[in-house]
Nucleic acid binder design. Sequence first.
DNA 1: AAGTGGTCTAGACCACCGA
DNA 2: CGGTGGTCTAGACCACTTT
Lengths: 250, 250
Amino acid sequence: MPDPAVPLQLSVDRTSPVPLYFQLSQQLEAAIERGTLTPGSLLGNEIDLAGRLGLSRPTVRQAIQALVDKGLLVRRRGVGTQVVHSQVKRPLELSSLYDDLEAAGQKPATKVLRNTLEPATAEVAAALGVAEGDDVHLVERLRYAHGEPMAQLRNYLPTGLLALDTPQLEATGLYRLMRGAGITLHSARQSVGARAATAAEAELLAEAVGAPLLTMQRTTFDDTGRAVEFGTHVYRAARYAFEFQLLVRP
Amino acid sequence: MPDPAVPLQLSVDRTSPVPLYFQLSQQLEAAIERGTLTPGSLLGNEIDLAGRLGLSRPTVRQAIQALVDKGLLVRRRGVGTQVVHSQVKRPLELSSLYDDLEAAGQKPATKVLRNTLEPATAEVAAALGVAEGDDVHLVERLRYAHGEPMAQLRNYLPTGLLALDTPQLEATGLYRLMRGAGITLHSARQSVGARAATAAEAELLAEAVGAPLLTMQRTTFDDTGRAVEFGTHVYRAARYAFEFQLLVRP
DNA sequence: AAGTGGTCTAGACCACCGA
DNA sequence: CGGTGGTCTAGACCACTTT
């Protein structure tokens, strides 16, 4: 038998501009986060919850659904709504190397090697959905951590989307610049592989020729489905690994 | 100005057990898939759509929301609902090497090297949420494609979840076995890296010592948040790359 | 049989966008 | 300003699970 329903300190502020379902959803998430709602515990049925909060059932359902989508709650017909049994709470994020490094306290530094316009190759044109030969931005960067080279980042962007200022590129990550320009990132298609370092890559990254490198190709889309960036990156395998979470479509 | 609203052949069957919102959602998705609804085109407002179909607005909204969540539609307040501007329709799937290979027409073969119970090491115990030293299943497999070795797969599973039959493991993939046993996979946390092949790995995978290998560690969770599998995999980099899609949390 | 979530209705008012 | 999606209500019936 699962744990009994847990009485919670929940309340909503009807004068707030924050949607009621969102207020509730945040309070439930906070309760799960700090352990007030323990894994496996039941939430109490939706009708009671609605009555206690002075909300309608659809509003309560909307709050719960948001957390189900996040993977924090599970609904079972005839049973109830329970907190999931583990700490799989890490969000699924579009990993930005800059943010990854910063979160790891590594103070990333960036050197812009190239920041130009170039005609799109067939590969780049296909990825970005532009015509072959059309001008696209090319940004090539070398990223350092702890004073050592870490990755070579080559990115292509459609023109007219963003001003690409070299000092800014050296001060922050590309994704932050894009978000700052009002672009809402939505999804990315990635391919991750490995290969041996060429002579040029070995030189650039201070590795031996033939050393294992992690390669990543990524096309990023905004919320309207436009491709806003195509990147080809090479990482020193000894110093970096990708971490991410996948969700299974039901 | 965006394209004008497109009149569509939509209808719902109220005698069907399939939920109305789902019927509508499927028809809209099919129309997008086959190009009847072109990228950028407007869907027509929700009230009219509801009226034409004899549905209530919340039901129509539920159908549209499902496609927004899938990334096929975008809503804009004051504007309307549009089809996204690109073909980012690929589902975000938990990649199974077996399925990947089969989809590529490569007829994967599997050789089970080990299928035993072992006490969990600290790393495995932490990943699966069991106590260190508790027995866990260990399955070690070598996967072939076109008669050549392709990857070494080492998986740990909690006991009591699944019968691990060696012939079945050689005939199909682990994920299919798990789904067949009624386990609903929900999400996975992965780490992908690269390194040089050790002598033992080189021997096993018919590579040279020092050849680049792609490594993957994965913990898979079911819909209740339990860890149901932990895997440590090694792939020949020349013959495999990971493809996946990430979604950005708003 | 009782209790749960799943679906659905027919309204309502508000916030935002474009003309 | 009119039209759009965003939020919310107060009910209803159904399907499923457990007792």
